[in-house]
């Protein structure tokens, strides 16, 4: 079977078709997976797309973390397979403790829907390998709780271990260190608030998302 990316859907997820479309455009097979199915054994990688899993009840990602599918995602992460959480997917990954820190309400209490310039900090991750540190890309953001926070010890370790993937050029939401995306230490698990799947065609306002998703696809193909 050709390499396949599982795109996980929780009740309230709403970006899964965009992700499947964007990956397909770049030649990668992607399959939607319901959160109640515990099995991801036919997938080589997984994307947790954006939306409002379980209505964001309690905290974004707090309930999704206990879904059946999460144990498979944890196994894949531990096995070094590529795992990408976008927006709400990032929130799920922090709640599941696959990534450190947490996402709190935007400073200023506004839902932000805009295109943001991002600086590539590390290209050691599965979402940035085809980019150069210092390179500036533009991606849309669309969130209310995207203000990344962590304690100082965690922040220092993110810098020391080169785990900051992207940071905002003009911090829109109050994130510590202007962080827009981080990875785990190994670089195979990435969480990002911006939406690369919404920037893969000129007609929707840009193609910088292709570089992010192509990096991810390269990681999938390299196993």
């Amino acid at each position: 079977m050709p390499p396949t990316v599982g795109v996980v859907v929780f009740p309230g997820t709403n970006c899964e078709h965009d992700v499947v479309h964007a990956l397909g455009l770049l030649g990668m097979r992607a399959q939607i997976k319901w959160h109640g199915d515990a099995e991801l054994s036919d997938c080589d990688a997984v994307v947790l797309p954006g939306g409002f899993a379980h209505g964001d009840y309690l905290r974004p990602g707090a309930i999704a973390r206990f879904s059946k599918v999460m144990s498979s995602i944890v196994e894949m992460a531990e096995a070094g397979k590529p795992v990408l959480g976008i927006c709400n997917g990032f929130q799920v990954l922090t709640e599941a403790k696959l990534l450190p820190g947490a996402l709190q309400k935007n400073a200023g209490l506004r839902f932000i829907c805009d295109v943001e310039k991002l600086e590539v900090v590390s290209n050691r991750s599965v979402a940035s390998a085809l980019l150069q540190p210092g390179e500036i890309i533009s991606l849309p953001i669309n969130h209310f709780e995207g203000n990344y926070t962590c304690d100082q010890v965690t922040y220092d370790s993110l810098i020391e271990n080169d785990q900051i993937v992207f940071k905002y050029v003009d911090n829109p939401n109050g994130s510590i260190g202007s962080i827009a995306a981080i990875s785990n230490q190994r670089g195979n698990v990435v969480g990002m608030m911006p939406h690369p799947e919404r920037a893969v065609e000129e007609i929707v306002g840009g193609t910088d998302g292709r570089k992010v998703l192509s990096s991810f696809i390269q990681a999938v193909l390299n196993g």
Binding site: L58, A62, F66, T94, A102, T149, D151
Partner: peptide, 8 residues
């Protein structure tokens, strides 16, 4: 485990 997030 559920009701609070220790980071926040």
């Amino acid at each position: 485990q559920l009701l609070s997030n220790p980071v926040l």
